[in-house]
């Protein structure tokens, strides 16, 4: 699995950092998403999918392998 971020669309709602803290953080400068791991290990794939589903601005795209 690969994770892509469309950073321009992010408004820092924080759903990603809340539901998949191993994969996403929020920047201290403007609260927008920081991708920590673009190729999550298998055990984190579900949280990656959840974060993508809950992001209100379609920032996170999951590319399933």
């Amino acid at each position: 699995m690969k994770i892509r971020i469309d950073h321009e669309r992010c408004r820092g709602a924080g759903q990603c950092a809340l539901h998949a803290p191993e994969l996403f953080d929020q920047s201290d400068d403007d609260g927008t998403v920081v991708l920590l791991d673009a190729e999550p290990p298998p055990e984190l794939e579900d949280s990656a999918r959840l974060a993508a589903a809950l992001c209100p601005n379609s920032v996170i795209t999951i590319i399933e392998s």
Partner: peptide, 15 residues
Amino acid sequence: HTRYRRMLTRYFTVR
């Protein structure tokens, strides 16, 4: 909206 949101979001992050 973006201008304000960018300014404020960092004060309301999960962390």
